[in-house]
Design a protein around this nucleic acid. Structure first.
Lengths: 108, 108
DNA sequence: CAGTATCCTATAGGATACTG
DNA sequence: CAGTATCCTATAGGATACTG
C-alpha cells in the first residue's frame, strides 16, 4: 500500500462514499454531519461516521466540534484535501473519454 | 457509477490488481499472460484472467491471440489505456505528499 | 445533533484442481 | 501456455436500535 504512491492515493479514496464526501466538502467549505448525510443520499450515520474518521486519519479533512447543546460538528477539507482536486479533474477528463469510447464501441 | 466521470475512472482501476496491471503494461508495451503473472507476485491465474477481461471490456487493454502451439497471448495498452498515465502521475505526486504528512504528524 | 453498538449480507479476492 | 471450474473466506457495506 505504501510501496506505490499512486496506490496509496487511490486507497485513501477507495470505497463507495469517500470520493463523494471529498466532493461535497470541496463545494461547501464547512458542512455539518447531518447536512452531509442528507446530501449523500442513502448513507447511514454509521457509515458516514466511519468514513469521516478514516478521512480525518489520513489528514484529508478536519473535524471541528463546538461544545453547544445540541452539539455542532463541522467538517472541512485540509490543505492536503484541497490539493487533490487537480488530480481528480484530470481523472474526470479521462473518465469522460473512457465512457465515450465504451458508448461508441457498443451502440445500445 | 456513470453519474460522475471521476467515479467512473476510479471504478475502472478499482481492486487490488488493476492498477498494477496497467503499470506493468506501461513499462512493457506487450506482455504475455504467464510473464505478467510472474511479475504480479501473488496473483492466481484465475484472478489475473478476470482482471484482464474487465480491463479489456473497458477498452483499456487489448488482447492479441496467436494461434500457435503452445498458445501465445499478448496484452498491451490501448491509446485510452496509455492516456491515463498523466492522471496517475499527478495522483502519485499527491500521494507522496499525503504520505509525508502522515509521517510528520505521527512520528513513530 | 452527531454519533455508537450489534448483527447481517453481498461480493471481492483467493486456493486448488483441472484443461484445450 | 493461457486459461476455466469449483468452492471458500475476509471484509466492505448496510439495517436497525439506541444515546450523551
Amino acid at each position: 500500500m505504501n510501496d506505490c504512491p499512486v496506490k496509496y492515493a487511490l486507497n485513501i479514496l477507495n470505497g463507495k462514499w469517500k470520493l463523494q464526501i471529498v466532493w461535497e466538502l470541496n463545494q461547501q467549505e464547512k458542512i455539518r454531519f447531518n447536512e452531509l448525510q442528507r446530501r449523500l443520499k442513502g448513507i447511514s450515520s454509521f457509515m458516514l461516521s466511519k468514513n469521516l474518521d478514516e478521512l480525518e486519519q489520513y489528514r484529508i479533512i478536519v473535524r471541528k466540534q463546538y461544545n453547544e447543546v445540541p452539539p455542532r460538528v463541522e467538517y472541512s477539507l485540509t490543505e492536503l484535501g484541497k490539493a487533490i482536486h487537480p488530480s481528480l479533474e484530470m481523472l474526470g477528463a479521462w473518465g469522460i473519454r473512457a465512457f465515450n469510447e465504451m458508448q461508441n464501441q457498443r451502440p445500445s
